[in-house]
Amino acid sequence: MKKWFCLGSRCQAPSSPADPRRSSRGAWPHVYSRARRKFHKAASEGDVARVEGLLLLGKSELNEGDRKRRTALHFASACGQAEVVTLLVEKKCNINACDSDSNITLIKAVQCNQEHCAAILLEHGADPNIANARGNTALHYAVYSETTAIAARLLSHSADTEAKSKDGLSPLSLTLKENRQEVAELFQKAKRNTEEMDKPG
């Protein structure tokens, strides 16, 4: 599996407007305005009051994206800003919004090992089986990072262990390829539990 870009602890909105002539894949022609940049910066920094204020004043839209189609929820999820994530999902933002690489917000949270944010997204209906442009789901990244707690949460929300990426790897086969023993044991336990539940009464 190839490496991915994670905003991490230094995450922030881009500091300059996007050049519309260099829009991502030619499909995002909107100029990255100053107001939009402030909105995403506030989300990435966990400034709940500023995020809410910009929305109330009508200076920002809930689902607006930057030139890579990343929304405020992408930034907040990747940066571990749980309060902002909660605010945005309660305001009914597009929880499964995709960036220019087809990464939904849940995938960004998992890539950046933000368990609390991933949990909030799942509880509010994020789909764990949506794949990105490489065919990887959130569970692929949980396996690769060996984040067992996140993998367990994904499984509890019906994440598919057999979903194959464009490289032909499923989360299950990835546990073998990357020698992720703890996650493999978790998968086996989940499978046994499912089989027990499916047995006739």
Results as ranks from 00 to 15, higher is better:
residue 24 S to D: 11
residue 142 A to F: 09
residue 69 R to T: 05
residue 63 N to T: 03
residue 51 V to T: 05
residue 48 V to W: 04
residue 91 K to Q: 00
residue 102 S to H: 10
residue 132 N to T: 12
residue 46 G to D: 04
residue 138 A to W: 03
residue 131 A to R: 04
residue 127 D to N: 09
residue 184 A to K: 13
residue 182 E to H: 15
residue 34 R to L: 08
residue 142 A to P: 05
residue 35 A to F: 06
residue 41 K to C: 10
residue 51 V to Y: 07
residue 28 W to A: 14
residue 101 D to C: 14
residue 71 T to Q: 01
residue 41 K to Q: 13
residue 39 F to N: 04
residue 194 T to F: 00
residue 23 S to N: 15
residue 46 G to P: 09
residue 140 H to C: 06
residue 92 K to G: 06
residue 117 C to D: 06
residue 186 L to V: 01
residue 81 Q to H: 06
residue 114 Q to K: 13
residue 99 D to K: 12
residue 155 L to M: 03
residue 110 V to N: 06
residue 94 N to L: 10
residue 125 G to P: 05
residue 10 R to S: 14
residue 134 R to Q: 13
residue 179 N to A: 15
residue 119 A to P: 00
residue 41 K to D: 12
residue 112 C to R: 12
residue 18 A to D: 10
residue 181 Q to V: 15
residue 63 N to Y: 07
residue 148 T to Y: 02
residue 63 N to P: 00
residue 171 P to Q: 06
residue 4 W to S: 14
residue 156 S to V: 01
residue 191 K to Y: 08
residue 128 P to I: 02
residue 83 E to F: 01
residue 64 E to N: 02
residue 31 V to M: 11
residue 148 T to K: 13
residue 176 L to D: 08
residue 117 C to T: 02
residue 72 A to R: 01
residue 112 C to H: 11
residue 156 S to W: 00
residue 133 A to Q: 13
residue 174 L to V: 03
residue 67 R to T: 13
residue 95 I to R: 02
residue 16 S to V: 14
residue 94 N to K: 09
residue 184 A to L: 13
residue 112 C to P: 08
residue 127 D to W: 02
residue 8 G to F: 10
residue 137 T to G: 04
residue 160 D to Y: 00
residue 156 S to M: 06
residue 92 K to S: 02
residue 181 Q to L: 14
residue 151 A to K: 06
residue 27 A to K: 13
residue 161 T to Q: 07
residue 188 Q to I: 09
residue 19 D to I: 04
residue 52 E to M: 14
residue 179 N to I: 05
residue 1 M to Y: 09
residue 113 N to R: 14
residue 22 R to L: 15
residue 105 T to E: 04
residue 151 A to I: 07
residue 1 M to F: 08
residue 114 Q to W: 00
residue 86 T to V: 08
residue 94 N to C: 11
residue 119 A to E: 11
residue 21 R to Y: 12
residue 89 V to S: 01
residue 90 E to L: 08
residue 138 A to S: 07
residue 167 D to Q: 09
residue 82 A to W: 10
residue 48 V to R: 12
residue 83 E to S: 13
residue 200 P to S: 15
residue 6 C to Y: 12
residue 176 L to F: 06
residue 163 A to Q: 07
residue 187 F to W: 03
residue 150 I to E: 03
residue 24 S to L: 11
residue 171 P to H: 01
residue 124 H to Y: 10
residue 163 A to G: 05
residue 186 L to I: 08
residue 20 P to Q: 07
residue 94 N to D: 12
residue 198 D to K: 15
residue 66 D to C: 06
residue 116 H to K: 15
residue 54 L to H: 04
residue 24 S to V: 13
residue 132 N to H: 10
residue 69 R to E: 07
residue 173 S to N: 04
residue 179 N to W: 06
residue 140 H to E: 08
residue 199 K to S: 14
residue 9 S to K: 14
residue 123 E to R: 02
residue 29 P to T: 06
residue 164 K to P: 01
residue 192 R to P: 00
residue 201 G to A: 11
residue 9 S to H: 11
residue 119 A to S: 13
residue 128 P to S: 12
residue 155 L to R: 04
residue 73 L to M: 07
residue 83 E to I: 03
residue 97 A to V: 01
residue 169 L to D: 09
residue 193 N to S: 09
residue 49 A to Y: 07
residue 55 L to F: 03
residue 128 P to A: 08
residue 43 A to N: 11
residue 69 R to L: 10
